[in-house]
Amino acid sequence: MTKPAFDETIHAPNRLQICAMLAAVESAEFSVIRDGLEISDSVLSKHVKVLQTSGYVKVTKTSGKAPRSTWLTLTPAGRKALAGHLAELRRIADMADLPT
């Protein structure tokens, strides 16, 4: 059972969705997340940078003859923080359902 823990870094709507999308897979290409969220490259880059600085997302750039691509992976720390944050959101949502 994950301990509920509010996470300021993940709380921003776009960052929460980025983490949720990355949690469903091992890694995803930058364009998949960008198109999924319908945001621009620069906006996604900004959020990824914040998550990367917090150690929640790992960024890998491919090299070689094929066109370069950027892959994003949620780190174990990111998975843990997301799980805690979602548990906290569920706790808050459930509290409203309790009889007063």
Binding site: P13, Q17, A20, A28, V32, G36, L89, I92, A93, A96
Partner: peptide
């Protein structure tokens, strides 16, 4: 911290985001 409505909305956004990536 969000209130209950905001928390539910955030959880719904999470579900929708996951559905979008599941297409892949």
């Amino acid at each position: 911290s969000p209130d209950a409505a905001a928390a539910r909305a955030a959880l719904n956004d999470v579900t929708a985001a996951r559905a979008r990536v599941l297409r892949h």
